[in-house]
Design a protein around this nucleic acid. Structure first.
Lengths: 132, 132
DNA sequence: ATAAACCTTCCAGTAAGGGTAAAGTAAAGG
DNA sequence: CCTTTACTTTACCCTTACTGGAAGGTTTAT
């Protein structure tokens, strides 16, 4: 199939699929006559696989790893599980950061009257020269 | 003061401070003889302000807005508060996404034995062609 | 005089594509 | 058969917010 169909069926954009070719993630054969990319069903499946992994917040680099595990019939499930566990703890770190940020910002908002007057505790806090 | 001192006192890197000059965020005067950037105390205060706002997850564009509010003695605290509230709801969206992701990933991890065998529900799920 | 510790500009790269242009190809309609 | 429309190609720049490095000028200390 051509790139448009592969894109549609994988839920990716044509641009993205072409990009995955460019970075050697999924390289289709080219039709010699037209120079069009030709995707097989197996390649479509990989595109779908990547798309899903990306939605699970795996980076392209991690997608490459997952893809090679996917293609390797002799992999152990432990390897996949470890990659996923690492990803989960990365998410935990990010969750913590964001929660802290949220707490601090809502504290600032609660201190600010939000009226037409110029006094603003948020600006005051941002102007406070001590870091943090 | 020279850029190194301004960077140190603001907790930013020299590279970053130079970048802020380049994008017209904080433009110091240049010493004609040496071509060195000269930062005043007021500019240092702005660098500190920006640094803090960035740590609060405000984008450079938002920092520009905050900075103009900071510099405007006639601003209303409402404007600053609204910008901050917007930022909080953006953080909420991100928190939600990450929590969903975490739930899904830990569900996958719980289904996976993580042993030496190749059967892996994580890979199976990623291979599942229906989106989500 | 020379070394180190500053500073300068310029160029390239990051992640993961998006936007647009110019041009080739294919399929459908008249 | 011709034209329009839809699809595809490559190539280039743009995004965010910097970071790294090279090659060179300046200042300070030894």
């Amino acid at each position: 199939m051509n790139i448009g169909e592969a894109a549609k069926k994988s839920g990716l954009t044509v641009k993205t699929v072409r990009y995955y070719d460019e970075i050697n993630l999924i390289k289709p054969v080219k039709n010699k006559a037209t120079n069009y990319r030709q995707y097989t069903d197996a390649e479509l499946a990989k595109l779908q696989f990547i798309g899903k992994a990306r939605r699970f917040n795996f980076s392209i680099k991690e997608c490459k790893e997952l893809l090679s595990l996917y293609e390797n019939q002799n992999r152990s499930s432990k390897e996949v599980r470890n990659l996923t566990l690492t990803k989960i703890s990365e998410i935990d770190v990010k969750l913590n950061e964001l929660e802290n940020l949220r707490t601090q910002l809502s504290h600032l908002v609660n201190c600010c009257k939000g009226n037409e007057r110029p006094e603003c505790p948020i600006i005051d806090e941002l102007s406070n020269s001590d870091l943090n």
